[in-house]
């Protein structure tokens, strides 16, 4: 972790970065009233909390609680703690709300399928249908009073993926609110961000840009976060250059067809977890259904589509304009 205090105009700026949840966690903390000590304590709390959540929610950590659930829930009901129970309940509810577009059982199944199937081999979509046949959140059985999770078919696994980051941001946001740190921005890999306060004394929020198009790297979209979360999802891979990989890597599990065309979704919502789940779902369901979802949730955002070499941007949700360019 790298931290460095910097004083400017009566404020202390602390930054930190470390690897977490399969990406880079980055933060800027601005202390104006309470100063450096409060920022440092908050940074420590952030690090502890992220580690705690990662060790619980990681699909890839063989010792995580999610891994424990994945290994055993098809055999018998597995007792989980309230936090994990709550998260699974939320995921199931959102699955129903999005007609199955958001589904925490899909990523593991897709991953297994992709491991066996070359990315550019779309000829084997029938094998995808087969791979997804026995999965789906409908196969998760929760027993609230007993606080247990059970899978109705073997081979089912859950992976919170971006939802885990969104949840972590919501937990960190609570810590931030209680910390006395005047302003800050926390980010998981640039795709899941929460910011509070203003980056500058005379600004209400945090303004930054985001790369919303695979083909137009020169004109990122500007957004400003005012005590809210930001989540971005896309069906083109990262980003370090425009030749990364075959972009047809996101599939609609309901139809087993790739999500086309190139598309990115940005969702802003006061709750970063809600923003995260919405962006994932809207990427798949597209503009029309996405507008409905965002409006229902009181979220705003935009959907950027690239067709025939042109980038088209549609604002969706409860309509706040964005600057383009």
């Amino acid at each position: 972790m790298d931290t460095r205090p910097q004083c400017e105009a009566g404020q202390v700026v602390i930054q930190g970065s470390f690897t977490a949840m399969g990406t880079v966690f980055e933060t800027i903390l601005v202390g104006r009233r309470k100063g450096e000590q409060a920022c440092r304590i908050l940074l420590k709390l952030f690090a502890d909390e992220i580690q705690r959540l990662e060790s619980k929610l990681s699909y890839f950590d063989p010792d995580s609680i999610v891994t424990w659930v994945n290994r055993n829930a098809a055999k018998r009901p597995v007792r989980v703690d309230r936090e994990l129970m709550h998260l699974i309940e939320m995921a199931i509810q959102f699955n129903e709300l999005t007609d199955g577009a958001f589904d925490i059982t899909m990523p593991p199944a897709m991953r297994r399928w992709r491991a066996k199937t070359p990315l550019n081999s779309l000829a084997s979509l029938s094998s995808l249908r087969e791979a997804l046949h026995d999965v789906g959140s409908k196969n998760i059985v929760l027993d609230g009073p007993a606080r247990t999770v059970q899978f109705e078919c073997s081979g089912l696994e859950i992976d919170f993926g971006g939802m885990g980051k969104g949840y972590a941001l919501s937990v960190l946001a609570e810590l931030a609110r209680d910390s006395g740190v005047d302003a800050g921005l926390i980010s998981f890999g640039g795709s899941s961000i929460f910011a509070w306060g203003g980056a500058q004394i005379d600004r209400p929020g945090w303004r930054f840009a985001c790369h919303n198009s695979r083909i137009d790297w020169q004109h990122p979209m500007d957004v400003e976060l005012i005590n809210e979360g930001f989540s971005m999802s896309a069906n083109f891979e990262v980003l370090k250059d425009d030749s990364a990989v075959d972009h047809l890597h996101v599939f609609d599990a309901r139809t087993t067809k790739p999500v086309e065309p190139d598309r990115s979704v940005v969702v802003l919502h006061p709750d970063p977890l809600t923003a995260e789940m919405l962006s994932t779902a809207v990427l798949i369901v597209g503009q029309t259904k996405g507008c409905v979802l965002l409006s229902q949730a009181g979220a705003r955002g935009f959907l950027s589509s690239t067709m025939d070499g042109k980038v088209k941007i549609d604002h969706i949700g409860s309509g706040v304009s964005f600057d383009e360019g």
């Binding site: 980010s187 795709s191 961000i193 930054f208 840009a209 985001c210 891979e237 990262v238 980003l239």
Partner: peptide, 9 residues
């Protein structure tokens, strides 16, 4: 431009 889709490790 700090926003981007999934910067993955």
């Amino acid at each position: 431009a700090i926003g981007s889709p999934s910067y993955r490790l």
